[in-house]
Design a protein around this nucleic acid. Sequence first.
DNA 1: TCCATTGTTCGAATTATTTCGAACCTTTTA
DNA 2: TAAAAGGTTCGAAATAATTCGAACAATGGA
Lengths: 108, 108
Amino acid sequence: MSSSPDLPHPERSELSLTTVLFALSDPERLAIARQLVDGPLDMAECHLSNPNVPKSTKSHLMKVLRTSGVVRNEANGRARRLSLRREDLDARFPGLLDAVLSAEDPKA
Amino acid sequence: MSSSPDLPHPERSELSLTTVLFALSDPERLAIARQLVDGPLDMAECHLSNPNVPKSTKSHLMKVLRTSGVVRNEANGRARRLSLRREDLDARFPGLLDAVLSAEDPKA
DNA sequence: TCCATTGTTCGAATTATTTCGAACCTTTTA
DNA sequence: TAAAAGGTTCGAAATAATTCGAACAATGGA
């Protein structure tokens, strides 16, 4: 049976503020994070503003979010389950996620 | 007498969350912002982690902070007075600046 | 007035990030 | 068990950001 690859995630103690800020500084990535506030989604359910971008590009966006520690990416059948690492982020950078996600911003 | 150039600053309503996050996502720029929490400083009083970087580089770091709206840069004699745009940032993105500046992060 | 101080700006080189097709890997379903 | 679904990875090309020297500008003091 083996299993879909377990992708590497930084531990809570390894999270870097500037790396997290960078991950969230891209409108498309921020939009993805916002889609996850109400709970995990499979990758196919996460929509990009431009629905025509190739899957490799989408995968790369997810990688930046994952390697920064913003998002967890776990195998879920043949899909990928994405979730916000809210507890880890709140523990490490209190108030940051709330501030970022609750900010209203026309220009993203 | 004329006067030192008045550099352009975005208005409060023009501030973009992702642009602000990007500005703060660089360790050196974040460190500069942190030096301004206790009040304005002249540029010469803002220290970089590497004191040997040329002034043009330092000026560019300041430009990113200024054009994103994180910092105000005003003429002050032949110096430049830098200040955090705390009120504008708080109004636009409540809690963000506090969260970013209060976060303790070994790796910056 | 001359000149040192304190910057900004420009352009070019370097470096980092993004984008995307192609190849590949699991899992599920036919 | 073949093939489709859903994604990751790799490498190369395009784009963006950073770095830094040189040239320039305004201020303040001698």
